[in-house]
Design a protein around this nucleic acid. Structure first.
Length: 458
DNA sequence: TGAAATGTTGGGGCG
DNA sequence: ACGCCCCAACATTTC
C-alpha cells in the first residue's frame, strides 16, 4: 500500500503524485490532512472552497471504488500514524515551495519515505536559474529562460478504477456555507478552462484588463488548489497556438502563457527568498516609514475611499472572494502609494479575503506594486484611479454593478462622482458625501506626497 | 502592467 | 496669399 498525500493537488487528472503512487503498485490510499495551522486561518471563503473541493474529490474517488481519508491535526503526527495503520511502503506528494511546507516535509522525510514529485509548477524553482545557478530576480530574463526549457510532457490521464481501501475511519469534511461565486472541483475547473479556450482566450490580449467584460479565465482558485494542473493549462494553450493563424490569437495566447510564467516566477522568488514574507525584498525599503491610519485602512478594506474603481474592487473582493487582476493592481497602488500604508496590511487583507489567495503570487504582486520587490514597479509608477477607471471600465458596467448607489450616475461623472453638480446628483438620486463618500484624499496631492516619500528611499 | 509635465507639429481661423 | 496665433494631437521627458 502507498499513500497519496493530497495537499494542493485536488485532482485525479494529470496528477503526478497519484500516478506515481499507483505505479509503485499494491494500491493507493488517498489522504488529506486538515492541518490545524490551516483550519485556524481567518480565510473563511478559501476554506469553504477547499472543503467543497474535498467533497467533490471524495465523490470522484468513491465513483472509482476508493474514498478520501480525512484527518484533522498535525501532519507530522497524522501521516506517520496513517502510514503505520495501512502498512504503507511510501508516501507520495506534490512538492510545495512555501517555507512552512518545506519545513513540514523535511521533518516528515526524516520519519518515513516521503516521495516529493513535481506538479505545482511546470518548471520547479531549482530548474529555472541563471547559468551560475543563482536565481533570477527579474521577470523578463526568468521568462526567457523558462520558455527556453523543454516543453512539458503530455498530461497524465485520470485513473478509471482505484483499489478499495483497508478498513479505516474515513473522517468528515467540515460543513461550511458554499461560496456561490465559485463551485469547487475538477469538473468545474475543466469546464471553465474549455469555455475560456473557446472564447475569451482569443481576445485575451485586448480584453484581459477590461473590468466590464469577462476577459479573464477566472481559473486562479482552481489553480491554487490544483483542481487543474498548470501543465494542462499550458498544453491546452500550446495546442491552441498551433491552430491559430492570425497574429492576434497568437499574441493573446502568449499573453496568457505569460501569466502562468508570472505565477512560476513568484513561486521561484518565494523559494529562493523566503524572507519576502516578512520584509521588503529591496533592503532599502525595510526602514520605510509607512503611514499608520486605521481609519484609512478600514475605508480601503470596506470599499469607501470615494474612488469608485477602488471601492468597486474592494467590494467585489468582500462579496465574492475574487477580484479582477487589473483592480488588484489599482486597489494595491491606492493603499501603498496614495495612502502610503504598509503593503503588508494589504497583503494580509487579500490573503484573508481571496479564494485564490496564494502566498507566493500575492506577496509578489504586492511587493511589485509597492515597488519594494523583485522586478518592482518603479517608485514613480502610481495609478490614477480616475484614469484607470475610465480606461478599463469605459462602459461603467463594473462600477455600477459593485456600487449600486452610483447606478444612475451618468458615465461622464461615474469615475469621479465628486465632480458632479448638485442638480446632476439630485437627478441621479445620490448625494455625494452622504450616500457615497467624498474622496478620502485628493489624488493629485497624494501623488506628490508619494513621489517625495519614495524619492527619499532612492 | 503609469501619469504628469513639457515639447513639437500641423491644420485652421483670422487679420 | 501670407504670417501669426491657437490648440489639439501626438511625442518625449521627467518624476
Amino acid at each position: 500500500m502507498n499513500i497519496w498525500w493530497i495537499r494542493r493537488d485536488l485532482r485525479l487528472t494529470d496528477n503526478v503524485a497519484l500516478s506515481s503512487a499507483l505505479a509503485a503498485g499494491k494500491g493507493v490510499v488517498p489522504v488529506f490532512i486538515l492541518d490545524e495551522y490551516l483550519i485556524h486561518s481567518k480565510a473563511e471563503k478559501r476554506l469553504s472552497f477547499l472543503f467543497d473541493g474535498l467533497r467533490r474529490l471524495r465523490e470522484d474517488l468513491r465513483n472509482r471504488g476508493s474514498d478520501l481519508i480525512i484527518r484533522l491535526g498535525n501532519p507530522e503526527i497524522e501521516i506517520p500514524t496513517l502510514a503505520a495503520a495501512v502498512n504503507a511502503d511510501q508516501v507520495f506528494a506534490e512538492e510545495d515551495f512555501s517555507p512552512y511546507a518545506i519545513r513540514r516535509d523535511a521533518k516528515i522525510q526524516r520519519l518515513l519515505p516521503l516521495r516529493l514529485v513535481q506538479g505545482l509548477v511546470i518548471h520547479p524553482p531549482a530548474s529555472v536559474t541563471k547559468p551560475d545557478h543563482s536565481p533570477y530576480t527579474i521577470f523578463t530574463p526568468f521568462s526567457n529562460a523558462w520558455r527556453a526549457l523543454p516543453r512539458p510532457s503530455s498530461q497524465l490521464s485520470s485513473p478509471k478504477q482505484l483499489n478499495s481501501l483497508p478498513p479505516l475511519s474515513h473522517g468528515s469534511i467540515p460543513e461550511t456555507p458554499a461560496v456561490s461565486s465559485f463551485l469547487a472541483g475538477e469538473a468545474e475547473a475543466i469546464n471553465r478552462l474549455n469555455d475560456f479556450l473557446e472564447d475569451a482566450l482569443l481576445n485575451y490580449a485586448e480584453n484581459r484588463d477590461r473590468l466590464d467584460l469577462d476577459g479573464t479565465s477566472t481559473l486562479s482558485p482552481y489553480l491554487h488548489f490544483g483542481m487543474l494542473s498548470s501543465r494542462m493549462m499550458f498544453n491546452a494553450a500550446i495546442d491552441k497556438m498551433s491552430e491559430a493563424k492570425d497574429y492576434y490569437p497568437l499574441k493573446s495566447i502568449n499573453a496568457w502563457i505569460n501569466e502562468l510564467i508570472w505565477r512560476e516566477f513568484y513561486q521561484s522568488v518565494l523559494y529562493h527568498f523566503p524572507n519576502v514574507l516578512k520584509e521588503s525584498f529591496k533592503e532599502r525599503f525595510r526602514t520605510f516609514q509607512w503611514r499608520e491610519s486605521q481609519s484609512d485602512l478600514h475605508a480601503w478594506q470596506e470599499g469607501r475611499t470615494g474612488y469608485p474603481v477602488v471601492d468597486a474592487g474592494m467590494r467585489q473582493l468582500s462579496a465574492t472572494g475574487w477580484m479582477h487582476n487589473r483592480v488588484r493592481m489599482i486597489t494595491a497602488s491606492f493603499l501603498a502609494k496614495d495612502l502610503l500604508i504598509n503593503w503588508q496590511e494589504g497583503e494580509h487583507w487579500f490573503m484573508q479575503s481571496l479564494i485564490d489567495g496564494d502566498l507566493a503570487a500575492n506577496n509578489g504582486g504586492w511587493q511589485w506594486i509597492a515597488g519594494t520587490g523583485t522586478d518592482a514597479a518603479p517608485y514613480f509608477r502610481i495609478f490614477n484611479p480616475v484614469l484607470q477607471g475610465k480606461k478599463f471600465d469605459p462602459s461603467g458596467v463594473y462600477i455600477r454593478k459593485w456600487i449600486p448607489e452610483l447606478e444612475r450616475v451618468p458615465l461622464q461623472y461615474l469615475h469621479a462622482p465628486w465632480e458632479m453638480p448638485a442638480e446632476a446628483q439630485r437627478l441621479a438620486g445620490v448625494n455625494i458625501g452622504v450616500d457615497y463618500p467624498n474622496p478620502l484624499i485628493d489624488h493629485a496631492t497624494a501623488w506628490k506626497r508619494a513621489l517625495s516619500s519614495y524619492q527619499s528611499m532612492r
